[in-house]
Design a protein around this nucleic acid. Structure first.
Lengths: 233, 233
DNA sequence: AGATTGCATATTGTATACAAGAAAGTGCGG
DNA sequence: CCGCACTTTCTTGTATACAATATGCAATCT
């Protein structure tokens, strides 16, 4: 049982936020599985706090879409269907296009050189073959573009959407045959932004998401097949 | 004092949700003003419940961006700056374009005729000059398009964004000189969707938001001017 | 006079107690 | 052996009690 996630006491943060972060992380990393019930006293005992902070944390997770409430039954970790994932990706595609587009006109020289460095760092990371390193480099690259838009709300929304599919992020990063493609896609995005070519930037961003979608959907279908097989023994 | 909003008991809904809806409405309609503090005992007494449901409702409002938490100080109604409004509208523009685009290929015949009817109803409403009626007709029109996309997440996000600027909605609906323009814009959107012309639909949606943005920003600037004047007496 | 410290009070943060409803088990009758 | 009703227990929903901290005021010191 790797099931025992513990609180990282942050002392000055309210307990509800500590619990919120802890539970969110547990859901996103798969320690808490889709469909699993979140029982208040159980969590309270486990984390060594009372039910109150637990409940308040759940209210926030509920609005983030990570848990669903069943009236008079309690909270459970939200299941992600292929449909809901497609819905999320459909929105993300539009927002990522917007981000690339906005970044073209708003990026600073400094950010532009950071972006170049980040793209190179990502390429180096793919050589190391350590998925965590690659993932970090990927996030760093996209964070710079997002920052360049200067739109806080946009940033917040995209982060939340990305979160919904966090557990599938490694799927397309683990596949080494895709690495060179990812590097090319990044460089295409970088060049489009460099040239202030909004059309090209949007399209590059769209293609980037499209490819992720394909990989993730394929993975999900496989997972489902496996589950069926398991049930049919 | 129009300050006394009351609970609409929904009996089967948990109190926290009733409180949540009540407070949200109060914020959106301006009964609770930006910067105003939300004190738990005060609200609890006023609404005749204990602090617990109040707190849980505030947690949700917090995540919706309608209130901001100040640690150990409490919650207050979020202020909306011109910048944050522009941020919101920038995102909404992209999402409304997406909605119009998706609706083109996914709308059913039935929804199409509903949409035609809604557009006509909106035109009739502008003749009555009752702002509430007009607002309802406007919402109905856009709801049909949104529904046609079949994307639940998209719907949820756009609703939330629209909410942020709810109190300014009447600004562009009250101005009668704009009515004929709005009617034209709606009919443009309807025709584009009817013809399954995605490009045209997106553009029509974009223009629709652009015009709203102009009206709202102008209104906000005016409001701010007024405030300054008030302070400088 | 101004600043500073200490106290009183108000307000949030957390824990616990109590109420009510749902689910699961148990026993009885068919 | 199966099904239905009753009871028990578990879990959420709500209220309240207690703790910790910030704020404002006043008195005192410089």
């Amino acid at each position: 049982m790797t099931d025992d996630f513990n609180l990282v006491m942050d002392d000055f943060l309210p307990l509800r936020d500590v619990v919120f972060n802890t539970l969110r992380k547990a859901i996103l990393t798969g320690q808490l599985k889709p469909g699993e019930r979140l029982m208040e006293v159980h969590l309270a005992n486990k984390l060594g706090v009372s039910r109150t902070p637990i409940r308040e944390a759940i209210r926030k997770l509920e609005l983030e879409g990570l848990v669903v409430m069943i009236p008079r039954k309690g909270a459970e970790v939200a299941k992600i269907s292929e449909k809901s994932l497609k819905d999320v990706l459909e929105v993300r595609r539009a927002l990522d296009e917007l981000i690339a587009n906005l970044a073209c006109s708003r990026i600073t020289r400094e950010q532009l050189s950071e972006l170049k460095e980040a793209a190179e760092a990502f390429e180096r990371a793919t050589k190391t073959e350590d998925t965590t390193t690659i993932a970090k480099a990927d996030i760093a690259f996209h964070d710079i573009i997002m920052e360049a838009t200067g739109n806080l709300r946009l940033k917040q929304l995209v982060n939340n959407l990305a979160e919904q599919m966090y557990r599938y992020r490694f799927v397309y990063l683990k596949d080494e045959t895709k690495h060179s493609m990812l590097v090319k896609e990044h460089s295409r995005i970088y060049n489009a932004i460099l040239n202030n070519d909004k059309e090209a930037a949007s399209e590059a961003a769209r293609i980037h998401i499209d490819n992720q979608e394909k990989a993730i959907i394929a993975h999900i279908r496989m997972e489902m097949k496996e589950e069926e097989m398991g049930g049919n023994i």
